[in-house]
Design a protein around this nucleic acid. Structure first.
Lengths: 348, 348
DNA sequence: TTGAAAGCGATACCAC
DNA sequence: GTGGTATCGCTTTCAA
């Protein structure tokens, strides 16, 4: 029924071993023989059997990419960069690697499930993106899994997530603390004194780090860290919308809102407009990530632009062994403050 | 080194066959035996070897999802829906299926490459999303590949792409023509007479269909189809931005712009604002897709909302055999016109 | 440079 | 309900 390597061998009048060698290209084969084999492959329309190949070779050419939310361009941009980087170069059996983008929905359980699935597939590499959940048992279960993966020869790269101790995983982390500090400091420099802060989910590392940076900036300016000005929510638009109404209720005198993420910032803008406030005349909005559409949505937005593509590309290269991991296995990638004319108009 | 099924069998004092049955759960096994096996699995921390399993069973639990641009939320939303639908139910070997999201970048070559890669992996199903390229040789090469996939038992579902003849692929198509007709008719109903149209890439099916719908609406209203009012570009923001400037140069008197896609619409808005025009007072903007962020970016946008999640979910269910394919293998999914208060203010 | 043959690890058929 | 075992298709020594 299906064409096998043996069929190709028969047709080309060579042994299966030779066909395998031609296909994998990592072995000397006489030019004439190679021609004959390639011809047979084409004529029979032969397609290598991936599972059989992976079984025999004890590795596959799958590369897993874990993302929290595939519908969020933040991850889409990173995943895209990783993928184009790993797909490019030649690998085994046909030269192409298959990138597997897995959507965890931010749930540690699904993250673990996907890691197991990739382990089962004997993935060549795994890139885990996005902030981690800081819950103890989950974190250690994931660390244990990462350890097993690296032990089995799978390269593991954490992209935009803090290093995992003793796992053998390489980490490219974003400077979330520093970025948030810069962002808030900029607003304070403009004259803002009452700043609302919309944070992400409580137990995430990104949430905590960004919040810490925000507080550092407040402290550095001698401003009080009024707890009523901080609201937690999810990393999405709706959450930003609701949190902003919440903030306006609690502190009608605020003049700026810092959002821990671009989607959240968009929701904040929607709420502000609905409340009859003008951006940036009445309230300045600032956010993290700087996704392309935010430029259109909020022309005056001030953001910290994270180098998603660069980080993703680098993660992809490290995952495929085309770039040396950073010394110590950890590198910190810094964001850039993007100012698009936000102004300070302390109200009242 | 690595733990195999045989090791588990030895430890549980049963045969490999029994372990396999317990793991796959599709065979009667005595409760006591099952317990013992599960215990051994846990103790040895055994992980099934996917490739070996796929080889022996002649199928894998991989499901491929092809998208044109993973950084575009349009595809992210669909992919997310497909994935959550296929991951949900129990399958073989552990109950989980692995969704493989592949980024083709809109290139037919890469599409073909990925289909081959999935064929090589003996994927259980493939969901191909987004418009197809209408180029003859490519189209037929892809059709041939789809035919081979279905012949090999892989379920193929086209989601948001026109049916492929005689391939055995199920098609869920969006009513792009009808949607575009509705959209343009709505604007005409508001009083607009000079409408710019920003189309997608020339050779795409979605581009052509949406443009046809637009023209049908113009014709129905007895309006001339001025070719200078139509501009082609890519399906992204930048393209919308450039095309809009182009349109404004050619036809300064236009009062509405229809964009073939949401990202394009955002770019159009940016250009209009930059040109000093107000939306919707001076120019009304209308678009396709209705992505979440567009609500914030362009509160007055009129769009055709495509049911991306529903279509994706349905594609996922069909791909996993949990929903019957539509009669004839083709179903048309209709979009909904979303009006957010765009107005007609014929200028001049 | 090429061929022969021994696995790789799980599945599923056939007995018992 | 459970065990034995041929088999899946390819890779990779080892020889020639």
């Amino acid at each position: 029924m299906t064409v096998t390597l043996a069929d190709v061998a028969a047709r080309a009048q060579v042994s299966p071993a030779t066909v395998s060698r031609v296909l994998n290209g990592n072995y000397p084969v006489a030019a004439a023989t190679r021609e004959r084999v390639l011809k047979a492959v084409a004529e029979l329309d032969y397609v290598l059997n991936g599972p059989a190949s992976a079984l025999a070779a004890a590795t596959s050419d799958l590369v897993g990419i874990l993302v929290n939310d595939i519908a969020d361009p933040f991850f889409g941009i990173m995943a895209s960069a990783v993928q184009s980087e790993i797909g490019g170069s030649a690998g085994r059996a046909g030269g192409e690697r298959l990138a597997v983008v897995c959507n965890t929905g931010g749930s540690p359980e699904r993250e673990l499930t996907y890691l197991t699935l990739l382990q089962r597939q004997r993935a060549a590499a795994v890139v885990v993106t996005g902030g981690a959940v800081e819950d103890g048992p989950h974190a250690s279960a994931i660390a244990a899994k990462l350890r097993k993966l690296t032990a089995a020869g799978t390269r593991v790269v954490l992209c935009g997530r803090p290093p995992a101790e003793d796992t053998g995983a390489v980490a490219l982390t974003f400077d979330n603390r520093g970025g948030a500090r810069q962002l808030t400091a900029h607003l304070i420099g403009l004259g803002h004194r009452r700043l609302g802060y919309i944070a992400g989910p409580e137990e995430r590392t990104t949430t905590r780090h960004r919040l810490e940076g925000h507080r550092q900036a407040l402290a550095a300016a001698g401003l009080e860290d009024d707890p009523t000005l901080t609201v937690h929510g999810r990393y999405d638009r709706r959450s930003g919308y609701e949190a902003t109404w919440d903030l306006l209720r609690r502190a009608p005198d605020l003049t700026a809102v810092v959002a821990a993420n671009d989607s959240v910032a968009l929701g904040a803008c929607a709420a502000l407009r609905e409340a009859g406030l003008r951006i940036p005349e009445d309230v300045s909005v600032a956010g993290f990530d700087d996704l392309p559409f935010s430029v259109d949505a909020v022309p005056a937005l001030t953001t910290v632009r994270l180098p998603l593509s660069e980080a993703g590309a680098r993660a992809g290269r490290i995952a495929t062994g085309r770039e040396e991991p950073p010394p110590g296995g950890i590198a910190t990638v810094r964001g850039e403050l993007m100012v698009r004319g936000s102004t300070a108009v302390p109200r009242g």
